[in-house]
Design a protein around this nucleic acid. Structure first.
Lengths: 205, 205
DNA sequence: AAAAATTAATTAAACGTTTGTTTAATTCAA
DNA sequence: TTGAATTAAACAAACGTTTAATTAATTTTT
């Protein structure tokens, strides 16, 4: 991909995350990327196709990690859960702007096709975790829990923290200028919380 | 409030929840509310002021419930948590469209003032729950947990389920036409899951 | 109680901007 | 010299909003 195309995509991630798809104009986008307005349509065809191209490019961050953990035979089931939690936390925190866009797109009913595409990207992850938990329950190493909702709890907790900087800072007693998402201590704290919850919930006594 | 004003506000909730603020046009809104386009500005002054008026009106659903539970002396700490969870689940499920709008607004940086107003509405709830948990920890009835993140887990889990009907149905093995949010069994299931998690996490053995 | 005067509600049309997109000309690179 | 890249300008459509005229409702006066 050429420099300009990349510039446009990266500016799109920034602006769509902050202002949403409808709230971002091509002119604003072009200004941020320091290209002529016509370049967006020249390279991508339309605003919507730019959006789709951005998703297709950045969504690569999603695959692989969980499958590798699940099939690692040196790990116990709960160790796998721990690693999956760390994986999710790191991934969502580092890709939080793109993740926000995905979040917005799932919430709105504007572009049905793209929504379906996003579900198809995200669902395999959830399914893999669910399958792991269900097999651990069958083996007897986990309690009988609602495996589908466990994923909702893990992702939901991370999402809720990533949702609003303002809310997050208020909840954790930081001043408004603080950026909690780049604070390694805070990232660790979220991971530790989720692991402790899951240990207490999944493991038998 | 007059019939027409109410019609407009209710149509606004529907459309903003589905398409976002920027994605909803006054003309579409007026058509849905079956009023003339000029009526929106006549009654509310502007699109943004309509939005603010809607938030001010519908946000009343938020207050009171938690404080009442917290100060009820006939309940144990864990019973209070159970009731708070049920309260959140019922409230967010029944007001899910408005809740989506709040969610969107917190996520975007378009209307700073309104964002601050929403934080000021939501934060007292979180603080009350945090205070309850911290005092229970001090008393020795709860384990030493990260109280600020407990709220993130409760609200985050509910939010994640409410986020996308498509994703939700896929995760729970229902066909696309199913509306999980109006299924009492599903609502109970989410509440039960959260209560079980919190029992395992908060209570000592 | 009827008529007149006043205010509120409602409308279709127009306003000026901004939107995403395209064109046609020009510059650049191979 | 050909094709790709880049530009400023223009395009039609949609946007939020306002206007000016009309109808409906309310209040005041007779």
């Amino acid at each position: 991909m050429t420099d300009k195309k990349e510039h446009i995509v990266n500016s799109a991630v920034e602006l769509f995350a902050e202002k949403g798809f409808e709230g971002t104009s091509i002119r604003e986008l072009a200004a941020k990327a320091e290209v002529n307005v016509a370049m967006v349509n020249y390279y991508f065809g339309s605003k919507e196709k730019l959006f789709e191209a951005m998703v297709a490019q950045k969504a690569a961050y999603s695959r692989g990690m969980i499958d590798e953990i699940v099939k690692d035979k040196t790990l116990s089931d709960i160790e796998k859960i721990d690693r999956i939690i760390d994986g999710f936390v790191n991934r969502l925190f580092t890709n939080r702007k793109f993740h926000r866009i995905i979040h917005q797109e799932l919430m709105l009913s504007q572009r049905e096709n793209l929504q379906q595409a996003i579900v198809d990207i995200l669902y395999p992850n959830s399914l893999a975790v669910k399958t792991l938990i269900d097999s651990a329950i069958k083996k007897g190493s986990f309690k009988k829990v609602d495996s589908a909702l466990v994923i909702a709890t893990v992702i939901g907790t991370i999402n809720h923290v990533l949702l609003s900087k303002k809310m997050c800072n208020k909840l954790f007693g930081k001043e408004d200028s603080h950026v909690p998402y780049e604070d390694p201590k805070f990232i660790k704290r979220v991971g530790d919380h989720l692991k402790e919850i899951m240990h207490a919930y999944l493991l038998k006594n």
